[in-house]
């Protein structure tokens, strides 16, 4: 497993306004429910994700987090607004945006390495080369020992690591993660948080990560957006540095128990309760 040793390796983000990164402009999504009833799942959401950002969306269920991610992934066509990735409009799903799902969504008929190299297979990469890439990504998530295992033998945390590896094998620009740790036990969850940050640091990809856990959000984010429901909106944004401190070598528990972490955690909890 890679360890975070080179915080300086990450490039500094381009100044805002530059075409790099991901830009979300006035994104709105309205769902038609029933005959003349609609749900405003997203309402004029604006967000810029810079090249080195780890953006975490935090909010109670129903505030539009999954809807936002679905738009970014291209699974859902927004009612209004636009999404630009490196200056190009997003229309439909694509290899440049990899998705890790809450319920893994792996293919049980394929073993670990065939799951991890699925995207390369679809792109017509020959078997030797795609296994080479997949093996490297499996090593990155600590699963190279399990390359030939059937996925139904794996635990929940391992399944999510395969999901991460198959996204990385496609070398996307951004990793989209919808509550990927929601179904894991507390211990697995903490180690997965660290693993995801290590992977993010090692690969230098943008990340968009959804959770409803305040501590997780605060620990993972470089930018933390707090969302509120009906209509789905971003109500608060925080720039935080805990994840950068983690990849620079500070222990996770030390960060999570530091006074500034706890203070901010309580502040965010208050904000969330106030917006309910």
């Amino acid at each position: 497993m890679t360890t975070a040793t080179q915080p300086a390796a990450r490039t500094v983000s381009a100044p805002s306004g530059a075409p790099g990164g991901l830009r979300i402009r006035d994104l709105s999504v309205t769902f038609q429910v029933g005959k003349d009833q609609t749900v405003r799942a997203l309402d004029h959401v604006n967000l810029d994700i810079a090249e080195d950002d780890f953006v975490v969306a935090l909010g109670a269920s129903g505030c539009g987090k999954t809807t936002l991610l679905s738009c970014l992934a291209g699974f859902l066509k927004p009612t209004a607004g636009e999404i630009l990735l490196h200056g190009h409009g997003v229309a439909g799903p694509g290899r440049d945006r990899g998705v890790v799902f809450q319920k893994h969504a792996l293919f049980p008929w394929l073993n670990v390495i065939d799951n991890a190299s699925f995207g390369l297979k679809m792109a017509g990469v020959d078997k030797r080369r795609r296994y080479e890439v997949a093996r490297e990504k499996l090593r990155l998530v600590g699963l190279d020992q399990f390359a030939d295992a059937p996925i139904w033998r794996l635990s929940g945390g391992m399944l999510q690591r395969v999901g991460l590896a198959r996204v990385l094998a496609n070398d996307p620009d951004i990793m989209l993660m919808d509550e990927p740790l929601g179904a894991l036990d507390a211990f697995t969850r903490e180690s997965m948080q660290e693993l995801i940050l290590q992977v993010w640091n090692a690969t230098g990809k943008m990340a968009f990560f959804i959770t409803h856990e305040v501590e997780e959000a605060l620990f993972m984010a470089t930018r933390l957006i707090v969302m509120s429901p009906r209509p789905g909106r971003i109500v608060h944004e925080y720039e935080t540095e805990f994840s950068r401190r983690y990849v620079a070598g500070e222990p996770a528990r030390a960060i999570k128990s530091s006074p500034d972490f706890i203070r901010l955690r309580e502040e965010i909890l208050n904000v969330i309760h106030a917006t309910q």
Binding site: A73, G74, F75, G92, P93, G94, R95, R97, G98, V99, F101, K103, A105, L106, F107, F118, G119, K121, M122, A123, R166, N170
Partner: peptide
């Protein structure tokens, strides 16, 4: 599952690849 179909599409699978794979 819808997630499996979405996963395949976001990994670059075409419609016919989604059917066969």
């Amino acid at each position: 599952t819808a997630e499996q179909l979405n996963a395949a599409r976001s990994m670059g699978a075409s419609r016919s690849q989604t059917v066969f794979h």
